[in-house]
Simulated assay, not measured.
Amino acid sequence: MSDDSKEGEMARRLARAEAAVADLAKSYVTWASADVEKCAEHLAVARADTDGRASAVRDLYAVAHNIKGQGSSFGFPLMTRIGNSLCRLTRAKRPFGDGDLNIVQAHLDAMRLVLAQNIRGDGGPLGAKLSEKLEGMVVELLGPEPQPEADDLIR
């Protein structure tokens, strides 16, 4: 195969991949909304079953982790930022009180708002204020996120 043929084939493959991502992006709000509702179902279990709360929170974390990972890929970095905050809250291996679950609910409500209003990008000043409020709740509960030492960054 000549270099021109290889380049042409690569360009066609890239175009197909870009088209596939664009098709997925069209339905992002639908399936992200379904993921938020799965989180809400896990939250309802956590509220109802204090003995099974830790398991329900772990299940919620798994779905929230997907939301966090996908938002920016499809033009919704605000979903990624809120998802990151929710993941930090729910990945902690500790008892979860009712107040903690209220903070989870606030994150889910924010995600619903972003999706219902189709807020792409970072949400501007309002998105920043919303994210900072949610992140502040998590910091108040868990303390600041530990920063890596300079030596750790070099390794």
Rank of each mutant, 00 (worst) to 15 (best):
G83H: 01
F74V: 03
A62G: 06
R81V: 11
N118L: 01
A110R: 01
H107D: 08
K38T: 00
V21E: 15
A22H: 06
A40T: 07
A34L: 11
L101D: 13
R12V: 04
A20Q: 13
N102I: 00
G121V: 03
D100A: 13
K93L: 14
M79A: 13
V45H: 09
R91W: 03
E41P: 00
L115R: 02
A20W: 05
E41N: 05
Q117E: 15
E18L: 14
E7L: 14
S33C: 05
R91E: 11
V36S: 09
V104R: 12
R47S: 07
R155K: 12
D122C: 01
L126M: 09
G124M: 08
S131R: 08
L89P: 11
L130N: 11
G69W: 02
V21S: 04
H42E: 12
F76P: 07
P77I: 02
W31Y: 12
A11K: 15
L86C: 09
P95M: 01
G143F: 06
L86G: 08
L153G: 11
V63R: 11
Y61W: 15
E7P: 00
L24A: 14
S72T: 12
F76C: 03
M10A: 15
V138S: 13
L86N: 08
G52C: 08
A48W: 05
D122A: 09
N102T: 09
I154W: 13
V45F: 03
L78K: 08
D59N: 13
A20K: 12
S55G: 15
S72C: 00
F74D: 06
C39I: 00
A48I: 03
A17E: 11
R120V: 04
P95Y: 00
I154V: 15
E135F: 04
E132V: 06
L24F: 07
K129D: 11
D122V: 02
G52I: 02
V45S: 12
G69R: 08
Q147C: 10
V114A: 11
C39W: 00
V57C: 10
R12Q: 14
A32Y: 00
S72R: 05
K129P: 04
V139Q: 14
R16M: 11
